[in-house]
Each structure stands twice: as structure tokens, then as C-alpha cells.
Design a protein around this nucleic acid. Structure first.
Lengths: 208, 208, 208, 208
DNA sequence: TCCTAAGCGAGACGGTACGTCTTGTCTTCCA
DNA sequence: TGGAAGACAAGACGTACCGTCTCGCTTAGGA
């Protein structure tokens, strides 16, 4: 069943319109009629395709992320070889750089909460898989905190690192950002500040 | 100029009403008339006191955080003695536990973006001061990443740790959470997973 | 050029559909899509045949009235022999009885104004001809009111008599209705009530 | 509870607006926004006062007819002294003349069916009372047709007489119209045409 | 008998009006 | 005389229906 070409075209117009408008005036301030007007589409037509603004946003994001997923290394997102910092994967930061205007807005007061947590949870799931993979790769290793806790913390770092980068005017290169973040993740703030902490022998007591 | 007692009372009613409603139906879904109705106040009266919903929210939060600020150790938020995990400060997690319903909503799709970033930036500022303090306390120490970058990353971890905790059903105690987070912050994911990373000698090239 | 059989069929389907729907839900409430849906025809197809609902209605009526016109005495509609009430023509009331459901709706709030006045004017024209014929048949007779005024008044009576009949539950036979109306028309309310009025010698002053 | 003055004012504005628009473009063609625009009132405000166009129309008419009811002779609408044609009541036709533009539209294709039958039924009820009153005034009189049938017929005449008058360009005076109609009602088309009919001795067979 | 033009189904679309909702202001009235 | 009550303007919402258009399929009727 080949989709009507007009339908595809209209959808693309709406998506482009939304993306442009997010940059222009922030997500929350956009009205459906802004989108349709700029797409040169009748307002009721919008509702033929999407329930609301959010559905259009997430449909657009899905497209964008499918594209991104191709770029990323299939596995090993989490474990990097700290001895070869130049090989640390920076495709996420490059992606962000490519859509800097978009993310600058979406990670500000003018963004969308749904977006924030949707992305957070999506990434956390990916991270968790990686973490579990990394841990189980080596036998006799016992994680000291729940993997999903760790995943959420790392995602929080990642997103806030990006937000800081954008607010800071993107003065660092994607590669630098990836490196800083990777080291920080793996070695912690102790390493980051240069302050030396003795490794304690603490393990979280079980909650169950 | 002693504020009219009625004025204070009306404001308190509005704040209580907002807080109750956030828990009930999520921040974004609340309408001014919901607030006034529950507070048993005329809708136009709302506008005598606050410009809009956000102003009321932040006014309420200011109250809440003033209270919180008292509880916290004045300084040293950042550097904890990892050898004495029991003395790690967990007042933030206790505070969250006290307002669990509130934060559960505010850190979900039904929360407020303004809140997220407002709090993030506020905390990041505090963290940054602590970091700078910690670093400059010991001479001959050179931070390996910009302090504000580190601050934002840590805040991201903190907030997402809280969100994870709440979503997870608060199965851990505030103390445990504080410890996990503290260790993770200071020692990094390497420590957290138990995987051993050789400390590389990498330092971020300057951007300026 | 013989009309495509499909075309004729489609038209008939649409007409039948309209007629059924008028009875079901009243003319004004019908939508084009109701008609096409019931006729099992695509909506755009409707517009290939008719400009709008009204055009379909009047096209359908034209068919109906051509049929009716056959039944009626060619002339003498107006003048009846009051001495032989049984010979008074009641074909209109019979026609109404045959389409009682239709007229009950069309002569109610759910009917169509266009229909009312279209029919009124059409009948008034016929009546007027009859009246003029009747008057000019006998020399030395001077009508006391303008013939078209009289025509409109009589049509008004006719239509309202029909409406009353239908609202009343059609408790009288078409013949009775025809007789009542005929007598009332010719002899007036004086006769109808049994009250005796002395015939005055009044004639309308000319307006020209 | 004295109605808010603004409320009264708004209602009046809406009514005036409706009346003006009916004359300008016909009732059916009027849209709610036309009404509010001309009244210089926000569209949603309309719905604060009236459910729809029809409710506004009938509310306006009620006002108009209360005024009219004052003017009319309290009783004896039906029976007039044919010997004194000058005393025939012509207040209805005068009322119509006062609102000629309005009625010209409302009694045309551009009017409202609801209006037609609402007015018809209202007047028929009044007429019926008069007829019953007239008949029962004189004992030993037996009406030859059902009083409500007669009432509807007479109303039909009345309304169509008015319509004819307006379409005819109001070339007759209200008084003349009242006289023509009165005579026609009471004496019938026989008298009107001048053709002489022998009074038959027919009475409608009972239907019960 | 084929073939070609017409009729038609399907459905996307622009357009227009609807009735509703919410906000923030402003007016009226009452305590 | 200040606040409650509530009318109102403004403007976006999501829906309904209209009339048009485009695209293929199918099929009737002329070649």
C-alpha cells in the first residue's frame, strides 16, 4: 500500500515547520496554527496527521534518532579505552553540534519536559544494557550500585554536559567534550578535580 | 509596613492549593481556576498576588528552599570523607523524601521545565563554589576540566539519581542514596562497576 | 447520446437516500455525507450530479410533482360544485396521504423554507390562473380583491390545512379534508362557524 | 437580584445586531461571528447568553411581541362588524409595516422555518380561542368544521396575505389589507370573486 | 471484440464556522 | 472602600462539514 505522496509531503512540511519554529520561539510557545501557517497547510489538516504538537515532535525525533543510531558504534558505548583518548566515540556530541540550535532551545526553559524525560529514559535504557554487558564480560566482578541507578546518573551527566556545552557557547570540540565526559564518568570527580581519594572498600547494602 | 494579615493568609492558601494540586494532577495540567477554587478565593484575586502560575510556584519554592538551606551544612557539600561514609550528608535526600509526592511529579512528564533548569542552575552554582573551594584549598592542584562543567555534570547526576530513586519506589534509605551518589561522584563509574581503570594522565587542552 | 446507465442509477440512489433521510432526521439536519453514505456512493460523486442538498431536493420534487400533475383534473381546480360535495377533487390530499411521512417533516421545524415558499408560489400561480379563469368566465363580474392576493390566501389555507391534518394524526379522510377546505374557501369562516353575516356591499378601493 | 447592567447591554447589542443582519443578508446566512462582530462583542461571549442563533431570535421576538400584544384589542380579534369596515382592527398590518424589512426577509427563502411554524402555531392558538368564544357566545350554533382546523386555515391566510402584501410592494394600506382579509375570512372566496354560490347544507361528518 | 473515455471510490486537502476553554482585565455590587 | 463575583475580550483549541482535487480502477458503449 504505497502511501499517498501528498500525505508524505504534508508530513514533511509540518516537521520542517516545527523544527524551524522550535529554534525561533521555543517549543512551549509554538501553537498548532503557527506550524500549519508556516507549512502552508490548513489547520484541520494538522489533526489528520498528528494528535497534537507532542506527537509531531516525537515523530520528528524518531526520524532524527533513527538516522543517529546508524552513526553510532554498535556496541561498547560505555567502555572506552582511556589509554587511547583519541578513539573515544564523539558521535553524540557531533550530532548535537549539527542540531545545536534545536538542542539549545530544547535544553532550556523553552523546551519540553516530555522531551527531556523521554530522551533520558531512552538513553538510560541503552546505557544500562551497556553497563550490564561490561560487568558480565568479566567474571568475578560485582557492581557496587544498581546498574539502572548508574545508568540514570550517567545519562544525567551526559545531558547536562551537553547543556553546559551549548550554554557555554560550544567553545570545546565534540571530541574534547566526549573525552572529558568519558573520563569523568569512568574515573569520577576525584580524578576530575585532581584531588586524590583513597579507594574505600564500601559496598551498598542490599535493599531487598 | 506590616503586611495585611489577610494578604498573607490568601497567599498561603494559594500556595497550599498549588502544592496539593501538583501532586494531584501534575503541574502543567493545573489551571489558575483550579488553584483559586481549591483555595476558596476568587480567580481575579489570584492576579492581585501573582502574575501567573510560575510566579506562584517559584515563590512557594523559595519558601521551601529557605527552610532547606538551614538544614544543610554551610560548606563542604562537595568533599566528603570517603573513609567515614556514615557521616556523608544526606539532608537533600531526606528533604526529597519529605516531599516525595511533590518531586515525583515535578521530575516527571507532568512537571515543569522551568523548575528543572531553575533548580539545576541554582545547584550548579552552589556546586561550582564548593568545587573551586575544594580545589583551591590544596595548592599545586590543577583541575582537569572546567569547574562549571563538572558542577553541571554532578547536578545532572544528583537530579537523575533522585528521579531514579523516586521511580524505583524509594527502596533505598536517604543515607544509602547519599552514599552511593557521593562515591559515584568522587570515584566514578569505574569504581561503581568495579571495573578497574588505569589512571591515565590526560588533561583537557585549554579552549581559550 | 444515451445517458450512462450508471449515472442514472447513482442519481436514483441519491434521491432515494435523501427521501429516506428526510423522514428519519429532518431535512435541515441532513448532511451530504449522510446522503452519500446511505446511497453507498463516494461523497465527491454527489457533486458530480448536484450542486447541493437543495438542488437534489428540488430535482426529486420535480419528479414527484410531474407524477402528481397527471392525476389532477386539468382545470376547474378552483370552482367546485358545492351541491355535489362528493365530486370535489381530493387528489391533493390523497397525494399527501401517500407521502405523509415526508410532508409531516417538511411542514415542521425540520423542513426546508425553500420548499415551503417554492411550493407556495407554484401553487399560487396555478390558483391565480383558475381564479382569473373563473371570473372571466362570467361577464359582468368584478373581483373584489386582487386575484393574486386571493390566490396566496387560498394557498396559505391549503398548506396549513394539510399541516393541521398531519399534526392531527390524519383522523379525517382525504375526501373530508377536501370538502372542508373547499367549503371554507368558497363560503368563508362565516359559513364555517355557522355564524350568519349580512353580505355587505364593500369593494376594495383601487390602489393604482 | 438586579441583573448586571453590562449583561443587559450586551444582550441588547446582540439583538440589535441580529435584527440588522437579518435584513441585510437573510437569517439562514447569518453566522454567530457576524452577530458578535457587528455587536462589537467577543464570540465566546455570545454563548454566555444564548445557546445559538435561534435562541437569540426567539428571545428577540418575544420582546417584540410583548410590545405588540399591548397594542391589540384585548378580545374580538376574530369577529368584526362587517357593516363598519372602518373599525376593523389593522394593528397587525401596522406592526408588519413597522418592521417591513424584517418580515420581508423572514417570509422569504432567507427566513427561518422555525420562525414560520412557531408564529403559525402561536397565532393559531389565539385564533382558536377567539373562534370558540365567538361560537359559544351564541347558543344553538354548531361549528361545521373543527375550530383548530379553522384556526390554522385562517392563520395560513393571514401569513400568506402578509407575504403577498410585502412582495407586492406594500401598495395597499394596512387598513385595506385588514379589511380584505377580514371579508375574505368571514365571507370566503365566493364573496371575494363575486361569484355567487348557493349555501349548501353540508356538515362535516364526525371523525370520532 | 477491443479500447477508450466516462463514471466512480478513495481519500487528502483548503477553507470556514463551530462551540469550548483558559487567561487576564475590568466592572459591579456588597459587606 | 476593598475584595468577591462575574462579565468580558482575546485567542487558541479540536471538530465538523463543505466543496475541490487527484489518483487509479472499472466498466459501458462506440469503433
Amino acid at each position: 500500500m504505497p502511501e499517498d505522496r501528498r500525505k508524505i509531503r504534508t508530513r514533511q512540511l509540518l516537521r520542517d515547520s516545527l523544527m524551524a519554529l522550535i529554534v525561533e520561539k521555543g517549543y512551549e510557545n509554538i501553537q498548532v496554527q503557527d506550524i500549519t501557517q508556516r507549512a502552508d497547510v490548513a489547520r484541520p489538516t494538522f489533526y489528520l496527521h498528528y494528535k497534537d504538537k507532542d506527537e509531531l515532535l516525537f515523530s520528528s525525533l524518531r526520524e532524527m534518532y533513527e538516522e543517529l543510531a546508524q552513526l553510532q558504534r554498535p556496541a561498547d558505548m560505555f567502555i572506552a579505552d582511556l589509554q587511547n583518548p583519541d578513539e573515544i566515540d564523539s558521535s553524540d556530541f557531533k550530532h548535537v553540534a549539527d542540531h545545536a540550535d534545536f538542542y539549545k532551545i530544547m535544553l532550556s526553559d523553552k523546551g519540553s519536559i516530555a522531551f527531556i524525560w523521554q530522551v533520558t529514559d531512552y538513553l538510560a535504557e541503552l546505557f544500562e544494557k551497556d553497563i550490564i554487558g561490561a560487568v558480565s564480560a568479566e567474571s568475578d566482578i560485582q557492581p557496587r550500585v544498581p546498574p539502572d541507578f548508574l545508568a540514570h546518573c550517567l545519562v544525567g551527566m551526559q545531558i547536562n554536559a551537553i547543556r553546559w556545552w551549548l550554554k557555554d557557547g560550544m567553545r570545546h570540540s565534540p571530541k574534547q567534550m566526549a573525552q572529558m565526559l568519558e573520563f569523568l564518568c569512568l574515573l569520577g570527580a576525584g580524578w576530575a578535580t585532581g584531588v586524590d581519594f583513597p579507594q574505600p572498600n564500601w559496598t551498598m547494602p542490599s535493599v531487598d
